[in-house]
């Protein structure tokens, strides 16, 4: 069993992953950016842990055991005895390639490298011939404690042993794995995106307002509206991901209006709920849309969802029930059945 785990990245996902794995008996090494203030991070970490002790969430033994099993650093050299590395740095291909190339010279040959990227194919990041069998995507969803699904994305060169070790690791940490070949990578996000794009086009073509679309989506499809979802994830993050998903896609032009709109909003500093607004927020009046075309909008969205679901079912080797179940887990609610 993999015991010595390295997490690289001090952002939202890296931090979330560290705290999720904290109480599971792994030896954890947390690598932050070279410019990060390690002392401050260590202080915050100790404070959180001490508070858990005071609140009775941890007992004294557990508290000491965790402190002994974690190492926070900003040098990759401390990963020299790691068995599994999970990278969670910025969504930038060059930065990730550089990181893995450096790490390849430090980590043992048996160490499995994984990337938590939500949009970059793992084969683009494999640093050397020696690592190609032990490299995969390990795509967690945020927040990990609430999302019981992780995509394992396998480049064609990944070995069966690597897959088995990753499946076992996810089982140990209580997360369900969705195993995908690289051509099907990020299937959940891409499936939803196809539906979201159709919803956006209805607004773009002035057939519905965004308030109307989100209300319909909440009533008939998912617990959260399309534009609420965009604002919540962050429009900059969505833009970068959509660009990666649609690059070299024959349907790239179909996504262009959405990409242009996102680009405009991001350039105006509208990043979503983390800023002064995104699709919603300052200067966006409530517009109920046109109730007369409600049935038509619902019909179009249902058709779009069915088409997207069938498309990804046909292109992947996944059983329909597994894809549906993964989608339910992603949204934390039952998603519409496709007949």
């Amino acid at each position: 069993m993999l015991k010595n785990i390295g997490i690289i990245g001090g952002g939202k996902m890296g931090t979330n992953l560290l705290y999720y794995l904290l109480d599971m008996d792994f030896d954890l090494t947390w690598i932050l950016h070279p410019d990060a203030n390690i002392e401050k991070t260590q202080k915050t970490f100790n404070r959180r842990l001490s508070r858990s002790l005071e609140a009775g969430i941890l007992d004294e033994n557990r508290f000491k055991s965790i402190l002994n099993r974690i190492n926070i650093s900003n040098t990759l050299e401390v990963l020299a005895s790691c068995e599994l590395v999970i990278e969670a740095i910025d969504e930038n291909v060059e930065s990730k390639q550089k990181l893995f190339a450096t790490l390849d010279k430090i980590a043992p040959t048996g160490c499995i490298f994984t990337s938590n990227s939500s949009s970059i194919k793992p084969s683009l990041l494999i640093p050397s011939e020696n690592r190609k069998e032990r490299f995969a995507g390990l795509h967690f969803f945020y927040p990990i404690a609430l999302k019981d699904i992780v995509e394992i994305i396998l480049p064609p060169t990944a070995s069966k042993e690597t897959l088995q070790q990753l499946i076992s690791f996810l089982k140990v940490i209580g997360r369900h794995s969705l195993i995908l070949q690289e051509k099907d990578s990020f299937i959940l996000n891409r499936l939803i995106l196809q539906f979201q794009n159709q919803a956006f086009l209805l607004v773009h073509e002035k057939k519905a307002s965004l308030h109307q679309i989100d209300r319909i989506v909440r009533e008939h499809f998912f617990p959260i509206g399309v534009f609420e979802f965009f604002d919540s994830v962050g429009l900059d993050v969505m833009l970068a991901s959509i660009k990666n998903y649609t690059k070299n896609d024959p349907l790239e032009a179909h996504y262009l209006p959405l990409i242009v709109q996102l680009q405009e909003l991001v350039s105006a500093g509208r990043l979503g709920t983390k800023s002064k607004g995104g699709f919603y927020g300052e200067g966006v009046p409530d517009d109920p849309g046109n109730p007369e075309n409600e049935e038509e909008i619902i019909y179009k969205l249902k058709a779009s969802w069915s088409e997207a679901f069938r498309h990804f079912l046909a292109t992947s080797a996944l059983p329909a029930a597994e894809l549906k179940s993964a989608m339910d887990e992603y949204f934390g609610a039952e998603t519409p059945k496709v007949v």
Partner: peptide, 10 residues
């Protein structure tokens, strides 16, 4: 936590 996750989506 799953229950809270589902509730907080809405």
């Amino acid at each position: 936590l799953k229950t809270i996750g589902k509730y907080s989506v809405k």
